[in-house]
C-alpha cells in the first residue's frame, strides 16, 4: 500500500485483504484465473500493519457496502500466533472473529482468515508456491542450492542464513531468478503464468476465495 498506488477506496462488496503489493498482484492473477471480478484486493502496509490498518479500513466511507472479508497472511514461525494476530485486528475493527482459519463466521459482514501455507504449518505464501512448482525441472536444483547454502552457512559462516520458516521464500526467489526476467517478484511472476493455478496446492485458498 503504498505511496505509489492510488488511494485505497472501497469499491466492491467482497474484500480480500493481503499483506502487501506483491501479494496483491499474485491474488489478482489468481482471481483472473478463477474469473472472479467482484472481489477487491486490498494490500495492507505489511503483515504487522494488518492490525493497524484493518480498523482504519473498516471506518472507510464505503465500508457499508461490504458483505464479506477474507484476510490472508503468512504463518511465519507460528501459524496460531499469526491467526490470533488477525483475529485481534478483526476485533479492533468491530468485526466478528472466526473460531479457526478457513472458516467463515456469518454476520452482516462474513469474515474468514487464511493462514499460508496452511493453518498448521510454519512458512508463507512462497511455501505454497513451492508445492505448486513441484513439477518444474528447475525447482529441484534451486531447492538443493538453498539447502546447501543454508547448511554451509550454519556450519561455517558467521553470517546468519534464512530461518527455517523463511527458506521457502529463499527458494522461490532463487527459482524466479532462473527465468528470462530474473528480477520478477512473485506477483509479476504469477501474472506471467509461472504457476499453474489449477494445481491442487491452491485448492484450499481458492475454495475460501470463491466463498467470499
Amino acid at each position: 500500500m503504498s505511496s505509489h498506488d492510488k488511494k485505497i477506496v472501497i469499491e466492491k462488496s467482497k474484500l480480500l485483504i493481503v499483506e502487501g503489493n506483491h501479494e496483491k498482484e499474485f491474488f489478482e492473477a489468481m482471481l483472473s484465473y478463477l474469473k472472479l471480478t467482484d472481489i477487491q484486493i486490498i494490500p495492507a502496509g505489511g503483515k504487522t500493519l494488518i492490525l493497524r490498518d484493518l480498523p482504519v479500513l473498516a471506518k472507510s466511507a464505503g465500508f457499508g457496502i461490504v458483505t464479506s472479508i477474507a484476510v490472508v497472511r503468512d504463518a511465519d514461525d507460528n501459524p496460531n500466533r499469526a491467526f490470533q494476530s488477525v483475529c485481534e485486528a478483526l476485533k479492533k475493527s468491530e468485526l466478528l472473529v472466526p473460531d479457526r482459519p478457513y472458516e467463515f463466521v456469518p454476520d452482516k459482514v462474513k469474515v474468514a482468515v487464511a493462514i499460508l501455507p496452511n493453518p498448521d504449518e510454519k512458512g508463507s505464501l512462497e511455501d505454497l508456491l513451492l508445492k505448486a512448482s513441484v513439477n518444474d525441472p528447475l525447482i529441484i536444483p534451486t531447492n538443493e542450492f538453498i539447502d546447501n547454502a543454508v547448511s554451509t552457512l550454519y556450519t561455517g559462516s558467521p553470517r546468519p542464513g534464512p530461518a527455517p520458516h523463511k527458506q521457502g521464500k529463499a527458494k522461490i526467489h532463487a527459482f524466479l531468478a532462473t527465468f528470462d526476467e530474473p528480477d520478477r517478484d512473485l506477483g509479476k511472476a504469477a501474472k506471467n503464468k509461472v504457476w499453474d493455478f489449477s494445481h491442487s496446492a491452491f485448492s484450499t485458498i481458492q475454495s475460501l476465495i470463491t466463498q467470499l
Binding site: M1, K7, R52, V56, S60, A61
Partner: peptide
C-alpha cells in the same frame, strides 16, 4: 495509518 497506507478517510 491512513496517511501512511493511503487509505481514503474523506
Amino acid at each position: 495509518a491512513a496517511i501512511e497506507t493511503d487509505i481514503e478517510v474523506r
